[in-house]
Simulated assay, not measured.
Amino acid sequence: MAAQGDDLIGDVLLSEAQIQERITELGAEIARDYAGKAPILVAVLKGAFIFMADLARAVDIPLEVDFMAVSSYGASTRSSGVVRIVKDLDIDLHDRHVIIVEDIVDSGLTLRYLRKTFESRGTASLEVCALLVREGNQQAELDLRYIGFRIPPAFVIGYGLDVAERYRNLPHIADYKGAE
């Protein structure tokens, strides 16, 4: 956990219990919707790794997991708008049912890039499960099948979300008071 007294950690927006309850609901929805299909959950690293671990355990059907790392933030608290693949997938997506697992959807530009990339690989179906949708910043059409929570346009940390690799280990989601 972050150091006690870290004055950059703001108010808790979502408690650990709230997050876990919603993930259980999302897992049940995915299991119902993909019964008999064995989907592939693709986590967008690094932020979504904690969410995907909990989500995968909440989905009570056979599934596979893979990871992709993309960069659009660097060490900043604002997206640069330029997306690049840092780590590509190991699993072939052709004719597979894929669920992109995102920690947070902000502008939607990274998600639009991922959708185009995955669709070009011949997926049988492609959906998105986002833990958070930050409202008010969308620059691309969002087509999200599974949404954990909608949050105001503040910069948040915890539960996998970071600032320059810090705060991912918070068990809850909080405002970040050091945002530009």
Rank of each mutant, 00 (worst) to 15 (best):
S120Q: 15
I9A: 11
E29K: 15
V70Q: 04
I99K: 09
G10A: 06
A38S: 14
L142P: 00
D92S: 13
I100A: 11
R121H: 12
R166I: 09
V83P: 00
E21M: 02
A38G: 05
R168P: 13
I50P: 06
I157F: 14
K116P: 00
L41W: 03
R145L: 01
R57W: 05
G36I: 05
F51P: 04
V156D: 12
G108I: 00
P171F: 01
G108V: 00
R150G: 07
P39C: 10
M52Q: 13
V101H: 06
K177V: 13
S79V: 01
S15K: 03
A179G: 02
G36T: 04
K177W: 10
A53R: 10
N137H: 11
A17I: 09
V98K: 08
P153M: 08
A174N: 11
L14T: 10
E25R: 06
L14V: 09
A35G: 01
R150C: 05
K46D: 10
D60A: 11
I104N: 01
L111G: 05
A48H: 09
A43P: 03
M52N: 03
L41V: 06
A174P: 12
A48N: 09
Y34K: 08
Y146Q: 02
K177S: 11
V86I: 13
L45C: 04
K37H: 06
S72V: 03
N169T: 12
V82E: 13
G47F: 06
A31N: 01
I23S: 02
Y113Q: 00
G160M: 07
D143T: 12
G122R: 12
L14S: 07
S80I: 00
L161W: 09
G158H: 11
I99F: 06
R112L: 10
Y176E: 01
